[in-house]
Design a binder for these strands. Structure first.
Lengths: 107, 107
DNA sequence: AGGTCGAAGTATACAATGTATACTATGCGT
DNA sequence: ACGCATAGTATACATTGTATACTTCGACCT
């Protein structure tokens, strides 16, 4: 099973959540809104590329004319089955580690 | 708030859990048993040192004669308040990201 | 008293992941 | 035709992850 880092996991989960509009900028907006940190475009694309080379996500070039203001054609992101597996495993390990620590961590 | 990596978080949580006997080898045993990977001593100590320089854990040298078979005096590991805070924040972000993805990740 | 064994920790090197800055390409509005 | 905004690419460097090899020193043996 592929090892993934902290940010890679967050990105993977964020992509998984954008089922209706799985584009990089949506993912980025979600990350900035929910992870409590800024995410530059460079950081995100680098990570998307790494997830791709690990086979956890794929993309297709958006065939339609979705880009309203020009630029490169947009990538439509797709989480592979391996990606789903990796996310599930990471989650399971983390939940195991969190288990029972509520009283210690919260007041 | 200190940024911590994936393994740093696991180590921090593992230390937090060894309230009765917070020693490196206990932490290591817990990690190997629950994180699904091998953890060499070098990897663990390096990470403990990094957590220390971030102020998330501290240690005292075990004053007693606990080491039954010799060697360097043992470190008794202590998670600082900052460490607890960092762990809580990481957990909160992750739980937010996991939220609602159960159906997608599990069958 | 000296030698070996195992436990605990240290040092060092390198690989993988995280993150920013600067650059290219292209549609739209003027 | 020109510039602005959007989407993605390239490159460089910092931080984190991981292994291997080395030092220490008590207990045990002989």
């Amino acid at each position: 099973m592929a090892k993934i880092g902290e940010f890679e996991l967050l990105v993977l989960l964020a992509v998984l959540r954008q089922s209706d509009a799985p584009y990089a900028n949506r993912v980025r907006a979600y990350l900035e809104a929910n992870a409590g940190r800024t995410v530059t475009r460079g950081a995100l694309y680098r990570t998307l590329d790494r997830l791709t080379s690990k086979g956890l996500i794929e993309w297709e070039l958006e065939p339609s004319e979705t880009p309203e203001r020009g630029g490169h054609p947009m990538r439509r992101l797709i989480v592979t089955d391996e990606g789903r597996d990796a996310a599930r495993e990471s989650r399971d390990v983390l939940l195991t580690f969190f288990e029972g620590l509520g009283p210690v961590l919260d007041g």
